[in-house]
Each structure stands twice: as C-alpha cells, then as structure tokens.
C-alpha cells in the first residue's frame, strides 16, 4: 500500500499547554494510502497530535512535513495546505447558518474558485456517496448526529484532499449511529485515502487500519499492525489500556 516517500512526517514534535507536556518528542510517518489509527487514554495527546498536522495547534519544537513541504507558519500558504488536508471533528462543526449542500460547496467555491453549478453537482454526488443526498437542502440542526457527521465528511472530501484527519468522529454519536459513520470511513480507507483517525472504535482499528499507534502521557508508546497490537501489546500501558476497554 505504501509507495514512495511518506505523505505526513512528524519529527521530534514537542508541545506544551502551559506546564503540561502534551506531545513529548513524537516522531511518526504516514505513507500515501495508509490508514493510521491513534488510540490511547483521554488526555494522552492523541487529539492534539491529529490537530497539529493541519496546524490547528501550533507546535513548540520539531518539524512537521506534509507532501515533502514543511508546514507553513501563517497566511495564504497555510490556508492552501489546510485545503489539501480534510478534517472531521468530534462535534461535526457544520456551518449552522448554511444548508448541508452549502456546507459542502463553500470550500470549493470560495477556496478553489470552482463554478457554483459544478461545485453543486459534485457536492450532490458526494452527499449521495455518504448516503444523505435527500438532506441536501436542510440545515445541520435538522439532521441526526450520524447524518451531520457524514455531511461533515462530504464537506472535507469536496476539497479533494490528499489526506483526511478524523478527530474522534464517532465519540459524540448515539450508539446506533456509529455504524453508518464508520461504514463511510471504511469505504474511504478501501479507496486508498490516506487517513489519520483518532478513535475509541477498536473494531474499526482492527479491520480498517494498516497501523495502530498507542499514545500515553504525550508519548508515542507503540506503533504496530492492528493484529499484532491487539494480540501482543508490548508495553505495560497498552496492556493495561486494552484490558480496561475490552473487558466489557
């Protein structure tokens, strides 16, 4: 699956929130087409890790490279980089004052300067792909959580990103809606999208991930294929974490 140079490279990344060392010397590389799932206890820095990749969180030291280029600091170059990295949030963050279709077409029209008719056509196709084409003219608040999250995935895909970041995409959903979102993500993974997924869904990690990263206390503790990680976690922290979440 992995070809050529990696798409995302983090090298010795450190970040502090005040005295709290949230990312402690983290190094990681993600190949093109690779699906990396990040798991770990809450407060371990996994969301922060995900958010540093499109610089929603600036880092204190180290380097992050995307597609061969170091992340730009500010301004237009940073906006361009962000347009190439799709992001899906735990709380959906759909634009509350715009319809679902407008949510999906805003980026292509304003950032990519696509023609509105072409953007709408592609937007509808994407909504169809995630199974909510019939909700196109509704507002976010009129949709269920699962539908909103699928719309958010369509919004990110509309930018035709080189990679997708998922920051706990199913954590705010009712249990019966988790499946529909994971289905969309699984099909994306199968189509060869490069994905970094922070999640607590161990089933998704098992069947869709190429690698599982386990984080604790800001450190990257383990990095292994899912079968190996779930069968034989090497560290005490990972064994402890898995025993807690897999006993129920």
């Amino acid at each position: 699956m992995t070809t050529g140079e990696p798409l995302i490279v983090l090298d010795a990344v450190n970040k502090w929130f005040g005295p709290l060392h949230v990312l402690d010397d983290v190094s990681l590389s993600v190949g093109r087409g690779e699906v990396v799932v990040v798991i770990g206890p809450s407060g371990s820095g996994k969301s922060t890790l995900c958010r540093t990749i499109n610089r929603l969180e600036p880092i204190n030291s180290g380097t992050i490279t995307f597609d061969g280029q170091p992340l730009p600091a500010e301004g237009k170059p940073l906006a361009k980089l962000r347009s190439e990295v799709g992001m899906v949030f735990q709380s959906f963050n759909l634009f509350a004052h715009k319809t679902i279709l407008e949510n999906v077409t805003l980026g292509p029209i304003k950032v990519r300067k696509e023609k509105p008719t072409a953007a709408r056509e592609r937007g509808l196709a994407l909504l169809d792909r995630v199974g909510i084409a019939n909700q196109a003219d509704k507002f976010p608040a009129q949709l269920s959580g699962g539908q909103q999250q699928r719309a958010a995935i369509a919004r990110a895909l509309a930018m035709q990103p080189k990679a997708m970041l998922f920051d706990e995409p199913t954590s705010a959903l009712d249990p019966e809606m988790v499946g529909e979102v994971l289905d969309v993500m699984t099909s994306l993974a199968r189509d060869g999208m490069t994905m970094v997924v922070v999640t607590h869904e161990m089933g998704f990690a098992r069947h869709a991930a190429n690698r599982v990263i386990f984080m604790a206390d800001g450190q990257l503790v383990e990095d292994a294929p899912p079968a190996e990680f779930f069968a034989n976690p090497r560290s005490e922290r990972a064994r402890d974490f898995l025993s807690k979440i897999l006993t129920h």
Binding site: N54, L56, K76, A79, K80, L81, R82, S83, E84, V85, G86, M87, F89, S91, N93, L94, F95, A96, L106, G107, K110, V111, A152, R155, A156, M159
Partner: peptide, 16 residues
C-alpha cells in the same frame, strides 16, 4: 470556536 476552526480547516482565509 468550532465554526471558525472548521472554516480554517477547509482553507478559508481570515477574511473569508
């Protein structure tokens, strides 16, 4: 804050 964050993550500039 998530609204502005989502807009930034799409690549919208500050003015947009």
């Amino acid at each position: 804050a998530g609204q502005a964050e989502a807009a930034r993550s799409l690549g919208l500039t500050f003015g947009q």
